[in-house]
Amino acid sequence: MLVPQDETQHIDLLVLPETNLILVASVIEPLRAANRIAGKVLYDWQIFSPDGNAIETKSGIPIPVSGPFRPQNETSPLFVLSSYNWRAYATTQLKMLLSRTARHRELMAGIEAGSWFLAETSLLDNFSATNHWEDFEDFTAAYPQVTMVRERFVIDGKRITTGGSLPTLDLMLELIRRQHSYSLALEVSRLFIYEQERTRGDLLQVPTIGNMRISDNRVGAAVKLMEETVEAPLTLTRLARRLGVSARHLQTLFQETMGVAPHVHYLALRLNAARRKVIESRADFADIAAATGFNSSSAFSRSYRAHYRESPSETRRRLKLKS
């Protein structure tokens, strides 16, 4: 899950009783959204419980499962999800199963209190990890062999840990970005953020940064300007001038805050807006190119293919065949 991949990524989820419903959704919903936006199955998953019974979440809404957690030699990533009263479910048998399956898994993730299960099974020894802020000190004292980091989520080699539901959503966006593209992660993030209506209706069609949080006000202002100028993109110099900083300084701020250069984010905004028009409208590609800031249909098609690994016409043809 940490490197680009074209094939469908399968994930196993072990969900413990008394897990928050929102924690499960924080893992699954971004994957579902990625499949919907891509128009194909990028991810699929199975949910297991320790005994094969439906999971009783803290909200009282049960989650059906595929069966009991009885791993063999599966290599797919395993996410262990837990919220409350984890000790009651950390049985000798479950810890033995986790230890055994870790020999084969390409990746194991402790989601919120799921990190306690990995630590109890010595699967976080000599790894960096995080935990929910309420439990951070207790976890640090209990497992001195684990290097604790005060981050929302931590990816360290074959181990992942998160500090709660929203950090888990951030994690899933990061995994989608690494495996597919920044633009797909950006578009998925857009589905999980509410924004008040703006003054221009057409801006509602442009993806925003969503859960990719912007900590610098100047970068936030740059992102808003990008959203407002999709049809006629500004140069980096003009963008920086509007914000009262140098182009080089804006580039540095953007890289530090967003993890990408300004032009990467700008292009992702434009291509995501274009892709929605390709999928949701019958507009000519020349009109879509003009509406999203491309000089010509050929330039748009080249950029679209490089990003989505298919041409605009292939996208329409593929989705038409599925309907």
Score class of each variant (00 low, 15 high):
149 V>Q: 10
139 F>T: 03
141 A>L: 13
122 S>E: 12
124 L>Y: 07
147 T>S: 05
147 T>F: 03
145 Q>C: 00
135 D>N: 13
143 Y>V: 04
129 A>D: 06
140 T>N: 10
152 R>I: 00
151 E>A: 14
143 Y>T: 02
139 F>G: 02
124 L>K: 06
123 L>A: 07
143 Y>I: 02
143 Y>E: 04
140 T>Y: 07
153 F>I: 07
132 H>T: 08
138 D>F: 12
138 D>S: 15
133 W>G: 01
145 Q>V: 03
140 T>A: 15
150 R>K: 13
135 D>L: 07
137 E>W: 07
133 W>S: 11
126 N>K: 14
129 A>I: 09
125 D>S: 13
126 N>R: 14
128 S>L: 01
136 F>P: 03
149 V>M: 08
124 L>R: 05
139 F>A: 06
126 N>C: 04
152 R>D: 11
138 D>C: 09
131 N>D: 04
140 T>L: 07
149 V>L: 07
137 E>N: 11
145 Q>L: 00
122 S>M: 08
141 A>Y: 11
138 D>Y: 11
128 S>V: 00
136 F>H: 08
132 H>Y: 11
136 F>W: 09
133 W>M: 09
149 V>W: 01
138 D>K: 15
149 V>P: 01
139 F>V: 01
128 S>M: 12
143 Y>A: 01
145 Q>W: 02
146 V>N: 05
133 W>H: 14
153 F>C: 06
135 D>Y: 08
131 N>K: 09
143 Y>R: 03
138 D>N: 15
132 H>K: 10
141 A>Q: 14
138 D>P: 01
124 L>D: 02
130 T>Q: 01
122 S>N: 15
130 T>C: 03
143 Y>Q: 04
126 N>P: 01
131 N>L: 12
128 S>T: 14
132 H>D: 07
137 E>K: 11
133 W>F: 14
131 N>T: 15
136 F>V: 06
131 N>S: 14
139 F>H: 03
128 S>F: 10
125 D>M: 04
125 D>Y: 10
137 E>Q: 12
140 T>E: 15
126 N>D: 15
122 S>D: 13
152 R>P: 00
137 E>T: 14
128 S>W: 09
152 R>Y: 02
126 N>S: 13
146 V>Q: 04
134 E>I: 12
141 A>P: 01
142 A>D: 08
140 T>C: 05
123 L>R: 06
125 D>A: 13
133 W>A: 11
136 F>T: 02
133 W>P: 12
141 A>K: 12
123 L>C: 10
129 A>G: 07
135 D>A: 12
141 A>N: 14
131 N>G: 08
